[in-house]
Nucleic acid binder design. Structure first.
Length: 427
RNA sequence: GGAGGAAUGGCAGAGCUGGUUGAAUGCACCGGUCUUGAAAACCGGCGUACGUUUACGCGUACCGGGGGUUCGAAUCCCUCUUCCUCCGCCA
C-alpha cells in the first residue's frame, strides 16, 4: 500500500510510475480521488475530535461536581451533554465511511516502479539484463525427451497418479524423483544458511490479515486456495508467512538487515491459465520452493537486491543450468513490487526458457501494510523496505535438470547435488 | 468437542465496588551527577497512530479484536480470538 504523503508530495513520480504500468488517464484519476478523500478525512476527523474534546471536558466537570456534592448542577450538565451524543455518533459514522472508502481505493493501487523499470505491455517487453552467452545443450545421435516423458521413462514423477489423488497439477514424485526433489531443497537451504539467512519453517496456511499485509489480498484473492470453514488461505509462497513474522514490529536499526529463508510447498490455483505451457512441471498447483526474505534499511535495499540476485545466480551456476536474467517491465511487474528481476532457465528438450526465480524489492509497499518499522536512536519509527526472492522454485528446475542432463541411456546429476542425492545418475 | 480461569505499556506486574489512570511499582533502556574508568547509588527521561500548530505544545484514539451501556469504562454487558487448568478424542 502506498503512503498517502508520497502520493501527495511526489505526485509526478507516482503518475509517471503508474503510466509504466499502463494506467490510462481514467485510472490515474484515482490518485486525485484518494487525495480528495484524504482531505475530507482530515476535515471530518478534526470536526469529530473537537466534539469529543468538548464532551470529554464536560464529563470531567460532571465528575468533579458529583464529587463535591453539587448533584443538582451535575444533573443539569449531564442532560446537556447527552444531547451532543447524537451529533458525535453521526460524525463517527461519517469518518468511518470516508476511511473505508479511502482504504479501499488505496488497497487497489499498485507499487510505483523503480526508475530503471521500462514501460511495457507484458512479458515480451521485459528487458534481458543478462543473456546466456554459453552454448545451449544440444543432443546428438538420439532424440531428446521432454521432462514429462523422462519422468515417465525413469519412474520419477507420476502426473496421472496426482490426478487420481487430487487433480491435475499435483504431481507425485517418487523414487529418485522424490530424492532429487529433496536434494534440491536441502542444497538450496544449505546455500541460504551459508549466506547468513535464518531458516524458518512457517505455517502453510495463513489468515486474511497476513495475506493482506504482504499484498496477496485483495489483489490475488482468486489465485489462492481458500478454506472457508476456518477462513484460512493456503500460502502461494513462503514470502507470506515469513515476511509476516515482523508484522506490527518496530525493530532496532542495528538488527537490519534481517535475513530469513524458508522451504515450503506453494499452492496456486492458476485460475485462467491453460495451453501448452501447463504441460508436465511447467505450471502446477503445488510446487516446492525455497524463499529468501530480507528486511532492510531503505538506504541499503537496492544493494541488497543486487546481493540477492547474485545469490540466486550462484545457485544456477552451481547447478550448471543455462540462465538469463530479466528486468520486468511495468506491464509485467507484480502488484506489490517496485523492481523485479526474473531468472529463466533453459529447458533444452522443450526448447523453452522457464521462469524459476523472481527477486523483488517492495520498498515500503509491504511494510506500510505490515506496519513494519525500524527505529534509529530516539527518532520516530520509519518504514523498512522488504525484499524477497525464490532461491529457488523447484518444479521447473527439475524439468530443466532432467531435460538438459539426459543422454541416450539416462540422466546425470550435477556434481554439486550428488552429496545431497546420494546418486550421480538416473537410469 | 465439554467445564472453568485468564488476556494491561519492551518484560514483569498493580488497578477491575466506573470519574484528572495513558495507566502505580519493579526490571530493561536512554541522558546526567559521582568515579582515573567501570559498577553501585542518586537525579531526570522513557509507547504508538492520527489530527492541529512556524514552534513549545494541544487534541483524539488505543489496557487481546469487535460491538454495547453511561455525561464518563482498563474497570459493567454482549460477542469473537488466543492462552492456561480439568474432562473427552487423537498423530
Amino acid at each position: 500500500m502506498l503512503e498517502i504523503n508520497i502520493l501527495r508530495s511526489e505526485k509526478d513520480r507516482v503518475v509517471a510510475g503508474l503510466r509504466k504500468r499502463n494506467f490510462n488517464d481514467d485510472d490515474l484519476k484515482n490518485i486525485d480521488r484518494i487525495l480528495d478523500l484524504d482531505d475530507n478525512r482530515k476535515k471530518v476527523l478534526t470536526n469529530l475530535e473537537q466534539l469529543k474534546a468538548e464532551s470529554n471536558q464536560k464529563a470531567k466537570e460532571i465528575g468533579a461536581l458529583f464529587k463535591s456534592g453539587k448533584t443538582e448542577e451535575a444533573n443539569t450538565l449531564r442532560n446537556l451533554v447527552a444531547a451532543s451524543k447524537e451529533q458525535i455518533k453521526e460524525q463517527e459514522e461519517q469518518v468511518r465511511a470516508v476511511m473505508q472508502e479511502l482504504d479501499t481505493a488505496l488497497l487497489d493501487l499498485p507499487n510505483i516502479p523503480h526508475p530503471s523499470v521500462v514501460a511495457g505491455k507484458g512479458e515480451d517487453d521485459n528487458e534481458i539484463v543478462k543473456d546466456w552467452s554459453g552454448e545451449l545443450p544440444a543432443f546428438e545421435g538420439f532424440e531428446a525427451l521432454p521432462h514429462w516423458d523422462l519422468a515417465d521413462k525413469f519412474n520419477l514423477i507420476d502426473f496421472k497418479l496426482g490426478v487420481k489423488i487430487t487433480g491435475s497439477g499435483f504431481p507425485v514424485f517418487r523414487g529418485k524423483g522424490a530424492q532429487l526433489e529433496r536434494a534440491l531443497i536441502n542444497f538450496f537451504l544449505a546455500q541460504a544458511s551459508k549466506a547468513g539467512y535464518e531458516e524458518i519453517v512457517p505455517p502453510l496456511m495463513v489468515n486474511a490479515d497476513t495475506a493482506r499485509a504482504t499484498g496477496q489480498l485483495p489483489d490475488k484473492e482468486g489465485q489462492m486456495y481458500y478454506v472457508e470453514k476456518d477462513d484460512l488461505y493456503l500460502i502461494p509462497t513462503a514470502e507470506v508467512p515469513v515476511t509476516n513474522i515482523y508484522r506490527d514490529e518496530i525493530v532496532s536499526v542495528d538488527k537490519l538487515p534481517i535475513k530469513l529463508t524458508g522451504y515450503t510447498p506453494c499452492f496456486r490455483r492458476e485460475a485462467g491459465s491453460y495451453g501448452s505451457d501447463v504441460k508436465g512441471l511447467n505450471r502446477v498447483h503445488q510446487f516446492d520452493k525455497v524463499e529468501v526474505v530480507q528486511i532492510a534499511h531503505p538506504d541499503q535495499s537496492y544493494a541488497i537486491l543486487d546481493e540477492m540476485v547474485s545469490h540466486v545466480e550462484a545457485l544456477l551456476i552451481q547447478l550448471e543450468l543455462p540462465y538469463r536474467i530479466l528486468r520486468l517491465c511495468g506491464g509485467d511487474l507484480g502488484f506489490t513490487s517496485a523492481l523485479t528481476y526474473d531468472f529463466e532457465v533453459y529447458s533444452a528438450a522443450q526448447g523453452k526458457w522457464l521462469e524459476v526465480s523472481s527477486v523483488s524489492n517492495f520498498e515500503t509497499f509491504q511494510s506500510n501494510r505490515l506496519k513494519l518499522r525500524y527505529r534509529e536512536g530516539n527518532e520516530k519509527p520509519q518504514l523498512t523496505h522488504t525484499l524477497n526472492g525464490s532461491a529457488l522454485a523447484l518444479a521447473r528446475i527439475v524439468a530443466a535438470l532432467l531435460e538438459n542432463n539426459q543422454d541416450e541411456n539416462g540422466i546425470s546429476i550435477p556434481t554439486v547435488l550428488q552429496p545431497y542425492t546420494g546418486f550421480s545418475r538416473i537410469d
